[in-house]
Amino acid sequence: MKFLVFSDIGKNVAEIATKLRDLGEVHSFTMKNQRETVLKSGSKRLVLLEGTPFSGNVSGALIGSDLPTYDYVFISSTPLGREVAGLISASTGNTIASEIFDFSIDNDKIKTKRFFFGGKTIMEEENSSKIVTVTPGSFEPSESAETAQEETLALSDSHEKLIEEKDRESSGTNIEAAGIIVSVGRGIGSKEAIEKIMPLVSATRGEIAGSRPVCLDYRWLSEERQVGLSGKKVKPRVYIALGISGQIQHIAGMRGSKIVVAVNKDKDAPIFQECDYGIVGDLFQIVPKIVENLKK
């Protein structure tokens, strides 16, 4: 079987290629500046795209790369990837199995799993789709001895124009790789209050993370630290949820954690249904007590 894999994020290509390389031949497409992260992904062919990527010129490049010779097209579900999948589907008439986090292939059928009803259920489907979008973080990437045959491909001009671009300050943290995560929700109250949590973060040698409101609405933490259906999917050994009510969209991002600890003052908060250990009460009283006990 022959697979085409695309993502603008190299790490996401590596995740999907790792899963696919035992099933057939993988040809990976990514941006040129992502080369390092894809080189050892077990792809037979690595096509590095040059230019400013928009969904129009990227889908054009993929369609122009002998697309009909591939059995399946796997695209990582990033904002660019989802658009590219839609454009390829509209152009080829193939349907999309979207936002899947697990799959198995049986000849011309693919069985997929995805979250449904906002994460309340897992829907298992049998598809004849040839295009699949994959939730980032679904598979564990590993290095392969096979080196990819590299080539470059220039993206064409697009109708969309880039007017201004600013790199967001990145701390270089990767919460997806963290062994311990201390995660804060709206219940923390203010950006300043996060300082009061830091002793727990250092005592556990963990990483700080947050819910969607904390990272996107209030911007108390950077976006790269957002856990949830629309953010990072994490699976640490310990996930400590502080002041997080436990909306299903959040649970979907941390369900893979080994042990979940929750602290919340509302004893009916849904997070207490999804934790191993829960403490009902004021997190500012409880966090110092946990730190104290950890130091014993």
């Binding site: 969904s55 889908s59 579900s77 989802r82 658009e83 590219v84 999948a85 839609g86 454009l87 390829i88 589907s89 509209a90 152009s91 999309i96 979207s98 936002e99 995805r114 979250f115 449904f116 009803f117 906002g118 979008t133 259906l229």
Partner: peptide
């Protein structure tokens, strides 16, 4: 609900 996110690309296409 379904979170597919592919409709904008499909319609533009």
């Amino acid at each position: 609900d379904s979170y597919t996110g592919v409709l904008p690309g499909l319609i533009a296409g």
